[in-house]
Design a binder for these strands. Sequence first.
DNA 1: CCAAAAGTGTTAGCAGTACACCCATGT
DNA 2: ACATGGGTGTACTGCTAACACTTTTGG
Lengths: 231, 231
Amino acid sequence: MTDSREDTDQPYCYRYPHPAVTTDVVLFTIRDDALQLLLIERGNEPFKGSWALPGGFVDIDEDLDDCAARELAEETGVENLYLEQLGTFGRPGRDPRERVISVAYLALAPEEQLSVRAGDDAAAAAWFPVKALPPLAFDHDEVIAVAHRRLISKLDYSTIAFQLLPETFTLGELQQVYETLVDAEIDKRNFRKWAQALEQIEATGELRRRGKHRPARVYRLTGRDRIAYLK
Amino acid sequence: MTDSREDTDQPYCYRYPHPAVTTDVVLFTIRDDALQLLLIERGNEPFKGSWALPGGFVDIDEDLDDCAARELAEETGVENLYLEQLGTFGRPGRDPRERVISVAYLALAPEEQLSVRAGDDAAAAAWFPVKALPPLAFDHDEVIAVAHRRLISKLDYSTIAFQLLPETFTLGELQQVYETLVDAEIDKRNFRKWAQALEQIEATGELRRRGKHRPARVYRLTGRDRIAYLK
DNA sequence: CCAAAAGTGTTAGCAGTACACCCATGT
DNA sequence: ACATGGGTGTACTGCTAACACTTTTGG
C-alpha cells in the first residue's frame, strides 16, 4: 500500500488531526542519603537548556511500556528496572510545537545498577535531589509531583521501596531507604519487627562487614514479584 | 500556513506516524442492588454488534479530562460526575484499524442522576452488572477489570463510594452501597460508628420516610471535596 | 578501650470486630 | 399487632508506638 505522498517530508497523513504520543519517565534512586531523580538537559528547542524528564516519542508499533523501557535504557544503560505507569498528561499547549500527549512512568532503581550517560538528543544527564530541582521543561514539574506523591503513598501498602535496594541488603540499609523516603527517623526495633513480619525477605546467611562495627546479616527478597501489596 | 494537501481526504500530515488517541470511560453505578456499568453497542465496524465502553477520539485542542466528560455527557446526558484517570492502554493491535491509544477513565454516579440515551454512533446503550458482562470489543474487558480493582481497593482508603449516592442519603443507603461493592454483609453498628467517625458526613436534620418502618435521618457530605483519603 | 552500627522484648493505647435489643412507622 | 428497617453500647482482640541496653567489630 504505497502512498503518493510518501516522497514528501510529511508522508504520514490522516483524515483527522492526530496528536503525538510520548513516554516520559520519572526515575528515582537514592544517592547520598537523598531521594534523587534523573533529568536530561535539553539540547534542542523548545526549552533548550532547560532540564526535562527522559523520554521520547512512541514508535508506531511499540507498546507503551516498551517505549518507556527503551528510552530509559538509552539514557541510563540499565534494563530490567521497576517501571509502572503513572498517568497521562495531555493538556493542550503543554508542548509548543504540536499537540503532545505524554504517558508518564514511575521507575525505581538502586544507585549501584545505574551508569548514566547522556544520550543522543540530550546535552547532559544528571541526578537532582527531589528537594532541589532545577527549572523544568514542559509540565514536568507537575509530572514529578505526581510521581513523588505516588511513591510516598505506596510505601504504606506495598513493598515498592525495596526496588531502591540492590539484590542483597542489610536491614540497616533498608531502614535508611525508608527514613530517606519519609524524611524522618524510624524506631529501629519496630522497623525490624515490621520488615521481618512482611514475609518478603529472607536472610542469605552471610554477613556484611562495613566499617568498624558489628557485621550485619544480609537479606534478599523472597519470591520473584517486584512488589507485594500488604494486607 | 496552508497546506497543498488540505483538499484531499487525509489533509493532516506528519513527518512521523502518529497514533490516534481516544478516551474510554468505565462508568459504574448501583442499580437493583448490583454494581453495573454502562456499555454501548457498536453500530460500526470493527466489532460491530459487540458492546464497548463509551468513548471517542480526543479533539486536537481538547484536554483529556474534558474529552472523557464530553463523551460521557453525549452518552448519558449527565455532567458533573466523578471522573478520575485510570490508565492508558496502548498495545499495538488493540484496534484493527490503526494504532489507537486509549486513556481510560473511571466514573461514578448515582443512578438517580443518570438518564442514558443512545448516542450517534452507538446502536444502543445499556447497563450491565459487572458480574454478567457481554462479550466486549477491543481490550475493554481488561480496562474494566482494572477499573473494578481500582474501585474496590479505593474503598479501603478513601470515600470514593460516596460518589455512588445522591446528595442526600441515609446511613442505611450508604451501607447498602458498601455491601454491594464488597459483596458481603457488614455489621450495622460497626459500619455506622465507622461512617460517623470519618467526619465526612453530617445530618441535615431531616428525616426520610420510606416504607413501613421508622424514618431515617438524612445525611449529606461535608466539605466540597469529591473524595477524601483516610488516615 | 573507644566509637559505631547490629541486634533484641515488653508494655500501653487504640482501632477493629463481634454481638442483641428497643424504636418508630405503615399496613 | 405485626413486619420492617432505624438506631444504639460494650467487651475482646490484635496491631501500633514508645522505649534502653548488650554485642561485635575496626581502629
